[in-house]
Amino acid sequence: METNEENKKGRREFLNQGIRLSMAAGLAGLGFYLVRKSHSEKMLWQLDPSKCVQCGRCATECVLSQSAVKCVHVYDMCGYCDLCGGYLRPDAKDLNTAAENQVCPTNAIARKYIEEPYFEYHIIEELCIGCGKCVKGCGAFGNGSLQLQIRHDVCVNCNQCAIANVCPSEAFSLVPESKANKLVGYEKKK
């Protein structure tokens, strides 16, 4: 009786061992197969400004309550216009910083006088909510130097970006880390 039970136990352990080893082999095989098509680099989400249509969903759809998508100013492209389509409402009466003239709903763009007739525009990131209103204005009337970008220092890099899911122009894609920032017209200073 004893030996019978022990035999049974031995057999079961043998069976378990077999299954365990085949499972381990399966996992290893899966791992090797996947490594062949893996990236050693981290994958990040990228927003392609040339595809963006500024629908405004970046401001509302991000899992963070203040979106990780923010406006970025590509100074190299900026015309430093006094009449800035990204800063001022299209029918603004005065070219000044008054609330009634500003496009930005959160006062996140700072306008600074440089010299006649040029003004510098600077995005205050803590205030920017990524609604893209200025981007739309700049693209329509100006050079398109204001562009929406994912700020990777804020972005939590969700496995499936919630904005990407609802982006109507498929401007979001998952890319290796080195390609994560895509700005049009950006010139890296030496």
Partner: peptide, 12 residues
Amino acid sequence: RAQVRELDLLAR
């Protein structure tokens, strides 16, 4: 104008 500015500030 004053009202607009005030409301804007409040909203923000």
